[in-house]
Amino acid sequence: MNAISVRALAFVIGLMVLFAIPKLTGNEYVLALGISFAALSVLSGGLNLVYGYTGLLSFAQVGFFGIGSYTAALLVTEQNWSLWSGVAAGGALATAVGMVIGYSSLRLSRHAFAIVSLSFALLCMIVARDWVSLTRGAMGIPGLPAPTINLPGGMRWRIAQPADFYYLLLGFAVFAHALIYGVVTSRLGRAMRAIKLNEPLAQSQGINPLAYKLLAIALSALLAGMVGGLFVFYLTIVDPSIFDFYYTETMLIMVIIGGPGSFWGVLASSAVLTAVPDLLRFTTDLRMVLYGVVLIAAMLLFPGGLGGWLHRRRVARWRQPRVAP
């Protein structure tokens, strides 16, 4: 009881500090880092749900992110949709695409899913570049307007300043992580872990693996698409680089370092890996080379990741001779 209330208190204080940052500092660099963290952590959290909990290695996240971005940007600028309906449409389209990819490939094997999801992400970038009549090609759609949100009571919030975007994206990230947390700590998350740990056993117990896998993919696609739709108005431009493999590699590293299947671990590593490389001022190429080395080293030296290590420790503790209870 005590430990739980201490944790809850720490969580509430942490959240309050995060929301107070724009009041404490007007530093735009800090706000920019916070916005990056909010967006990237939603992507890595979704990947963790799909890979860490359900055991499906997916490269499709960046595709969902970009689809959400383009959809929201096009609907808001060309069809005069409101921000939220554009973002919701982006999330819905990403989810639909995710279901098609997941359903078609998962019936064959998880090998096929990994391959198809990668092909999908690369295809997205190429389509964004070459379908000029829709996406305006490599130049993208620059100069996205500052969106306005209607608040209850007739107030209108024009999101123009970095602090506005910080609140918007942080608020959405809190919602997204609450949703993911709700799923992974429920019996749905338990079934996903069961499928990852031993799929035939789960099937023999009445669990339908395809249904849970599609649920995980759909949720991660929805959140990635929506966060893309919000993030793109902060960038004020959407072009094919929204599908850059850089995002995929970054969120993979966040999940691997944080520990696949560890909610708080991935959240923490997302924060650290957003801030540290930026503060050290690595160029992107060099950062990707380093990430690659980290990935190889992690796979060779810690095949089970952080989760595997924790599991071995727990097993060792139980195996110690104990006084009979």
């Binding site: 872990r193 069961a194 740990l197 035939p200 056993l201 989760g307 599991h311």
Partner: peptide, 11 residues
């Protein structure tokens, strides 16, 4: 049940 005994080791 299965011949190759199956369990969720981490649960």
């Amino acid at each position: 049940t299965f011949q190759t005994v199956r369990a969720y080791d981490e649960l």
